[in-house]
Write a protein that binds this DNA or RNA. Structure first.
Lengths: 359, 359
DNA sequence: CTGTTAGCGCATTCAC
DNA sequence: GTGAATGCGCTAACAG
């Protein structure tokens, strides 16, 4: 293994391992049948073979048929790379996210993938680990081989984003840069509903368990909560959770209870889940003693008690962004589009009327 | 919008939308600075520019320096596609998974991505939606532009897998096809520990809430549970859950309780979470009245009560598979490797000694 | 309808 | 150490 990185994979067991090559039959890879070989075998010009695959309508049906048959038997498959060099179009788009492991993104990626597939585009996936430098690097690396890029929750500065947009078609998700096509998930609408819901239930003091300070969404949510509360005779207190995570939510519980609030809205579902655990530790029952609402609805339906949360629209965001990008690519036009997806409250089992509590 | 798919995105609001082109400064894309332009500007031959980027050691340091400087100011960036056509290597690998939205895969993808990045490879992501035909299609589409592919939990037949492997380097995860390099996550070791753990706690009747019938992992886990139980004086009953999901777990609860068992091991964490919810509905307290163990450890740490589960090793699997593939690519050799990653029980809060229960 | 001719941008022999 | 030619596999005018 010559000190390869695989060696570092501690704790594995190699059951079978044969070094050396495969038997003759397996090592032989179809080393790329070219268009010329097909042309020769079919007795036509190379361009006809090309046409048979790209514009069959330009050829007589019989010719197409014959070429296809020969291609089939020869095992010819068009070389995507060569085609791309010639046409300048490779049918690939890039999708760059900050953190695949965050449950918010996979559905978005999936939806984007599906949409790309509908137009026969392949997806390059990039994960920036929340690192702007890595993001820059990925965009550069993708640049040569994708026709456009969807940047999700970019951590780049507006300047860098503009710079990249000057190089190739770009669509943004959850980032509002003027002049660059973007789709925004407006969680404020859902957050507002959350506050109204809690107010209706009789809660008069609500705490917002905040998320990462540099997050666009966090800012948006905090603002929305404040503005919603101001018209409703309810007090808002903010408790920071440092990171958007389970543990920080759990750690925030003491501070939350200290405020005397009877309900909380958390920056996201992970944080809410942490709060839930912390509350249980302190024998505070949800929703009987305390109401809790999450955001992004990524865990709500699969945990117990089922978490009331704000919908995320990430599926639509992924779909619309990719669709928008492909449309730009195909029409070769750029449009200053700004889609805003509204969210709403998804009611489940973690909220309850205040009156229910022993007075 | 001419009836584009974006129109179908119900429930969105377009706040700003200007059709037409960008102002001059924005529509002008750097239409690809070529090696020739750099050569001219630097007063050298095209080949020298090429060398400056690929084999700087073949040029005098001053020349390299001058070329690089010119390239920089011109904004030249090597065209990946053209290079690929010329060299036959494009530095891309494909990663195909059945379902990105399943929380089991994202960490695996992330790890693979990270590993690829270390060797400057880009990743094509494919999502098959659990559909073999889609998987076949993706492999074909990728074939022209990746050097190798990692197939995760492939739903393809052994024959199809072999056929693809004859076309390009392939590495399998959780699929045991002889002759194809593969990395397997052996959940049986962890499941065995789970049974032993429950036995030590005094449980004498355990039910296995099974997963999808056609799943390699499900088969493996069920077998492991049986064999572990046989040496420990504990009874195993199997309750099917049809799908590996929250709702099917929730629906299985009646059947589970009907067996008279005092503990359960679920096919995966999602199912376990469903069981947890179903149990709570029936006022059965976990872990006081009933012990529960999940599999894959994807939710355990972020839910309440924290779920005892079997580790998944998906991160290592992704890392090792990609590393293996890249090694194959670079050494141009194929090896019949078979890595088996052992799992173990991760104890949290959903199991408890039977004796604790009121007798 | 189909064949001919040029490149796409780069890496890579060869010479010098 | 550097320049000049050739080709990777394919598409796209341009003729016929």
């Amino acid at each position: 293994m010559s000190g390869s990185s695989i060696d570092e994979a501690a704790n594995f067991v190699v059951i079978g391992f044969k070094s050396g090559k495969y038997p003759e039959t397996m090592i032989k890879r179809a080393k790329g049948v070219t268009i010329s070989q097909v042309a020769d075998a079919a007795g036509v010009a190379r361009s006809s073979v090309s046409r048979a695959f790209t514009r069959p309508d330009m050829l007589s049906p019989e010719t197409v048929d014959r070429i296809m048959k020969v291609a089939e038997t020869l095992g010819y498959v068009p070389n995507h790379t060569a085609r791309a060099l010639s046409t300048g179009r490779h049918g690939n788009i890039g999708l760059i996210v900050p953190d695949i492991a965050n449950p918010f993104f996979p559905p978005l990626i999936q939806a984007g993938q599906l949409e790309a597939d509908r137009s026969d585009f392949c997806i390059f996936l990039g994960n920036t680990e929340e690192n702007p430098k890595q993001e820059d690097k990925l965009v550069g690396r993708f640049a040569g081989q994708v026709e456009g890029i969807v940047l999700v929750s970019s951590r780049l500065s507006d300047e860098r984003i503009r710079a990249h947009a000057a190089q190739l078609p770009l669509v943004l998700i959850n980032r509002d840069v003027d002049g660059i096509p973007r789709v925004l998930i407006d969680s404020s609408s859902g957050v507002r509903q959350a506050v109204e819901h809690l107010a209706e239930l009789g809660h008069r003091k609500i705490v917002y368990v905040s998320g990462p300070a540099n997050s666009w969404s966090n800012k948006q949510r905090r603002t929305a909560i404040r503005s919603a509360a101001s018209g409703l005779k309810v007090d808002i207190e903010t408790v920071p959770a440092v990171l958007a995570s389970y543990t920080s939510g759990r750690n925030a519980v003491s501070a939350i209870l200290a405020t005397g609030a009877t309900a909380a809205v958390a920056f996201d579902d992970l944080t809410a889940q942490g709060v839930l655990a912390g509350l249980a530790e302190k024998k505070v029952s949800v929703p009987r003693d305390f109401s809790l609402i999450g955001c992004d609805d990524v865990l709500g339906a699969v945990t117990y008690p089922a978490l009331t949360s704000v919908s995320n629209r990430s599926v639509e965001a992924g779909r619309v962004a990719v669709s928008l990008l492909i449309e730009m690519l195909q029409s070769n036009g750029i449009r200053d589009a700004r889609y805003v997806l509204q969210t709403h409250l998804v009611m489940r089992e973690t909220t309850m009327a205040l009156g229910y509590r022993a007075p």
